[in-house]
Amino acid sequence: MKRRKIDFGLMVITDIGLAGGNLMSLLKKACESGVRCIQIREKILSDAELLLLCKQIKNIALKSHAYVLINDRLDIALLSNSDGIHSSSNGIKAKDIKKQSSKMITGKSVHSISQAKEAERDGFDYILFGPVFRTPSKVRYGNPQGLEKLSRICNSVKIPVFAVGGITPLRAEKCLEAGASGVAAIRPFMTSGNIKKIIKDFESSLGSL
């Protein structure tokens, strides 16, 4: 299975529960600031609502050629012309995605080295590891796993690793030092009063978006 090259370093993850009515304007500003990848991860919407939202976001992202990844749902990704799928820990397999659409970017959430290796074997293009730091979004995954564990994950696979969980611009730099290719976050973007500044800060700590 051919892997897609990952050419972004920052993933903005959506949460309409946090952003509310500001979601579209936040994402528009994020794209204008140079964000290259948005993951739509909404758990409270109906499928009909989710499909509408994904189409709207894809439309916004189109202008700056930013990627839109859909959490877990191949049908919604195909119908919204999105660029890929981020599979949750019990989500769809890479081969099932690529069989339907070989061009899709595929990513996988992992919480351990064995899961990371499995995701690489399964053919995913990148993995998302976390929570690296303490975060309210991920309390259900237990205690933060730390930079040392992140570093071990990065050493265990060849595919790009993204760090998630409590990520700030300052911590993003530490994640890169630990071997991560990039970072992902929800709160800094969804609850931000000044998303353009936050993204600028991430850009300077990551080197590029």
Binding site: S46, D47, A48, E49, L79
Partner: peptide, 13 residues
């Protein structure tokens, strides 16, 4: 159902 992916969209896939 009514809140699922619309029938016309499902047909496209």
């Amino acid at each position: 159902g009514k809140d699922d992916i619309p029938i016309s969209e499902a047909r496209r896939l």
